[in-house]
């Protein structure tokens, strides 16, 4: 008699093995995730408030600095 984790594992394994269109779709998903996380995230999304500052106080001060400039001073 199989245990529940085994049954679940077998269910997913057999499911993935029997995929037809799914194989192509998974390739598309993996390529897309690679582009998003490995390319865009690293090269283009590297700078944000969390990486630019160490504490929430610094982040709040930075945003407040932006909020306290009137359009004429921009």
């Amino acid at each position: 008699m199989h245990s529940m984790p085994n049954k679940v594992f077998t269910f997913y394994r057999d499911g993935f093995r029997s995929m037809v269109v799914g194989r192509t779709l998974w390739k598309v998903i993996l390529i897309k995730l690679f582009l998003i996380f490995a390319v865009l995230k690293v090269f283009f999304f590297s700078t944000n408030l969390h990486t630019a500052f160490h504490t929430d106080t610094e982040r709040a001060n930075y945003v407040l600095g932006n909020l306290t400039r009137l359009p004429a001073a921009r």
Partner: peptide, 16 residues
């Protein structure tokens, strides 16, 4: 499948 993760890009853009 094609739509998966397109929302993640929007979340990245919120941050950056």
């Amino acid at each position: 499948a094609i739509g998966v993760a397109t929302g993640i890009i929007m979340e990245f853009q919120f941050g950056t």
